[in-house]
Simulated scan of single mutants.
Amino acid sequence: MTGEESQPVPQGRRCFVSNLAWRTSWQDLKDHFKSSGNVVFANVMQDTSGRSKGWGIVEFETAEQAADACATKNGSRVDGRILMVREDREDRDVKRGNNSASHRAGESSGMQVVVHGIPWSFDDQQLMAIFTDRIPSTQIESAEVVYGRDSRSRGYGTVKFLSSEDAQLAIQECDGLELQGRLLSVKLDQWG
Rank of each mutant, 00 (worst) to 15 (best):
T132A: 04
Q180C: 04
R149N: 08
A170C: 02
T132C: 06
V159Q: 01
R134M: 06
F122S: 13
Y156C: 13
M128R: 13
F131N: 01
S163R: 00
H116A: 06
I118F: 06
I130V: 12
Y156V: 10
L169P: 00
D166S: 00
A129N: 12
E141P: 04
S142M: 13
A143R: 14
H116V: 11
I118P: 09
G148Y: 08
Q168L: 06
L177D: 05
H116K: 11
R154E: 12
L177I: 01
L179E: 07
Q139L: 09
G117L: 14
I171Q: 02
G117S: 07
S142Y: 14
I130W: 06
V145G: 09
Q139V: 14
D150V: 09
S151E: 13
L169V: 08
A143Q: 07
A129E: 13
F161Q: 04
I140F: 06
A167K: 00
S121W: 09
A167E: 01
S121T: 10
S142C: 14
L162S: 03
G157T: 11
D124T: 15
G155S: 14
D123C: 14
L179I: 12
I140H: 10
S121Y: 07
S121N: 08
T132Q: 04
D150Q: 08
Y147M: 14
Y156Q: 09
A170G: 05
L169K: 02
Q126V: 06
S142A: 15
L127G: 11
L169T: 05
R152C: 14
I118M: 11
H116S: 10
I135A: 04
D150A: 10
D133N: 11
S137E: 12
E165C: 06
K160W: 07
A129Y: 12
G155A: 10
Q180E: 09
E144V: 14
S137H: 01
V145Q: 12
L162Y: 08
D124W: 14
D123G: 07
S137L: 07
S151D: 06
V145T: 12
I135D: 04
A167I: 01
T132R: 05
T158Y: 15
A167C: 04
R149E: 07
D166L: 02
I171W: 00
A170P: 01
T158I: 11
V145I: 15
R154G: 15
S121V: 10
R154M: 12
V159G: 00
A167N: 00
A170Y: 00
L177K: 01
R149M: 10
A129R: 13
A170R: 02
E141Q: 09
D124N: 14
Y156T: 12
T138L: 01
F122M: 12
E144D: 10
Y147T: 14
R152P: 05
P136Q: 04
I130G: 07
P119N: 07
L127E: 08
D133G: 02
A170M: 03
D123I: 11
V159R: 04
L162E: 04
E173Y: 03
S164F: 04
R152V: 12
R149P: 06
E173S: 09
P136D: 04
W120S: 12
D166T: 01
